[in-house]
């Protein structure tokens, strides 16, 4: 109990492995795999842009930067809400924890809605994967991320349902930390995606 009050994770007695961040070790292995996949995607985008800088710079102003920025804020807010939810449960403030989770899910839902409108505008303009290299990357990279937001939402909703049922406590909220870690990963990736695809020129 003292550990959570001072903000430190309980020290594992099995010191054979380096102390991993809060959440199941399995989710952290999965997060590393996800970061690797996104990392490769970002690197390929960067190298393709290097070879076609004129095309990328000509196409990029057509993107909806306002939608991109709003979505950045929604993901940051969702991440913040989840962090506050975990902090609340660590203090056994269960109703607050459930409310923060609900707010995080709302932020994720907002992201999806904004993105759907963004895609709809692009498709209405006749843009698709075959339009050119820039749009191929814009659509595939953001849609790859979009699917991760959906998975993150599914995880958060499952955690929210269990939290509402009183399934977490200050002493035991590993499951919530596990879901939170995945959600933060989705945010972390977008923090690179937004400047890279929407702003850098």
């Amino acid at each position: 109990m003292t550990e959570t009050l001072t903000g430190d994770a309980p020290v594992s007695r099995a010191a054979a492995l380096p102390r991993h961040p809060p959440g199941d070790l399995a989710i952290w292995v999965f997060i590393l795999a996800e970061l690797l996949a996104f990392g490769v995607f970002f690197a390929v985008y960067a190298v393709t842009r290097m070879k076609n800088a004129a095309l990328f710079d000509a196409m990029q102003p057509n993107l909806d930067r306002n939608a991109g920025a709003i979505n950045t804020v929604l993901l940051l807010a969702g991440s913040w809400c989840v962090a506050r939810s975990v902090d609340s449960i660590a203090r056994d403030a269960r109703p607050a924890s459930v409310r923060w989770l609900g707010a995080a899910i709302a932020c994720g839902g907002g992201f999806l809605v904004v993105k759907v409108f963004e895609y709809a505008a692009k498709f209405a303009a006749g843009i698709n994967l075959a339009t050119n290299d820039f749009y191929m990357f814009y659509l595939s990279l953001t849609f790859f991320h979009f699917m991760h937001v959906i998975l993150g939402m599914a995880i958060l909703i499952a955690v929210w349902i269990k939290a509402r049922a009183g399934g977490y406590s200050a002493a035991d909220h590993r499951g919530m930390e596990t879901g939170a870690a995945y959600w933060h990963m989705v945010d972390l990736v977008w923090i690179i995606l937004f400047p890279l695809v929407y702003v850098m020129r």
Binding site: R19, W28, S79, V82, A83, A180, H184, I191
Partner: peptide, 20 residues
């Protein structure tokens, strides 16, 4: 800076080992 803050403060890597 944003990524570092998310990693350290939200993902709580500051509570993990140096290797992580």
């Amino acid at each position: 800076v944003k990524g570092w803050l998310v990693i350290r403060e939200f993902m709580l890597l500051r509570r993990a080992s140096l290797l992580w």
